[in-house]
C-alpha cells in the first residue's frame, strides 16, 4: 500500500517537475511547480516527516510560488524565442549532469540498507522536540550558516529594490 502511494506521488512529482520545464505558458509552469512541491510534501508524509511536509507546503507552496505567480502575472511574460545557450551554460549543465549521475550512483551503491530493520530504528525527526534538539545541538552550525545566507539575500534585496536618490540615502 505504502509502496503504491509512493509510486503515485513520485510519478506525480516527476511529471509536474517535467511540466515546469517543458510548458510554454509561464503561469502554467508556476502552477506545475506548485503541484510538484505538493507531491514532495506527500513523499515527506510517507516518510513520517510531517513537520517537513507542513513546512514545504507552508513556505514553498503557500508563499514562494504565490510570489512567483504574482511576478509572472505582473510582468505578463510570454514564452518567446529562446536565446542560444552560452558556452558557460553548456559547460555548467554538463557538469551538473555528471554530478547528478554520481549522486544517483552513490545512492544505488551505498543507499541500500542490508543490516537491521529500518522500521525498528527510532527516527531522529519523528517528533517536533527531537527536531528542535537536533537543530540546536548537532546541526547548529549549518543552521547558523543558512541563516547568514538568508540575511545576505535579504540585504541584497533591500539594496537592489530601494531607490537611492542622493548620497545621504546611502549614508
Amino acid at each position: 500500500m505504502a509502496d503504491l502511494i509512493f509510486y503515485i506521488f513520485a510519478a506525480f512529482t516527476a511529471g509536474s517537475a517535467l511540466a515546469v520545464v517543458l510548458t510554454k505558458n509561464t503561469v502554467a509552469a508556476a502552477l506545475a511547480l506548485l503541484l510538484c512541491l505538493v507531491g514532495v510534501a506527500g513523499i515527506f508524509v510517507l516518510l513520517d516527516a510531517f513537520l517537513l511536509a507542513a513546512l514545504m507546503v507552508f513556505v514553498y507552496a503557500g508563499a514562494v510560488v504565490a510570489l512567483f505567480l504574482f511576478i509572472v502575472m505582473l510582468l505578463d511574460v510570454q514564452g518567446g524565442v529562446r536565446k542560444p545557450f552560452k558556452k558557460a551554460t553548456i559547460v555548467s549543465s554538463v557538469f551538473a549532469f555528471i554530478l547528478l549521475l554520481l549522486g544517483l550512483a552513490s545512492f544505488a551503491h551505498k543507499g541500500v540498507q542490508t543490516t537491521g530493520d529500518l522500521g525498528a530504528a527510532a527516527p531522529v525527526g519523528a517528533t517536533l522536540k527531537s527536531y528542535g534538539e537536533q537543530l540546536f545541538t548537532t546541526y547548529l552550525l549549518p543552521v547558523q550558516i543558512v541563516g547568514f545566507l538568508l540575511l545576505i539575500a535579504m540585504l541584497g534585496v533591500i539594496v537592489l529594490s530601494k531607490k537611492f536618490e542622493g548620497l545621504e540615502d546611502i549614508k
Partner: peptide
C-alpha cells in the same frame, strides 16, 4: 497530528491560489 496548527496554516495558505487564478 503532532503538528496540528502548522498543518492548518500550511493548507489554508494554499487558499490564495484560487483568488490569484
Amino acid at each position: 497530528l503532532d503538528i496540528g496548527l502548522l498543518a492548518v496554516f500550511a493548507v489554508s495558505s494554499l487558499g490564495v491560489y484560487s483568488v490569484i487564478l
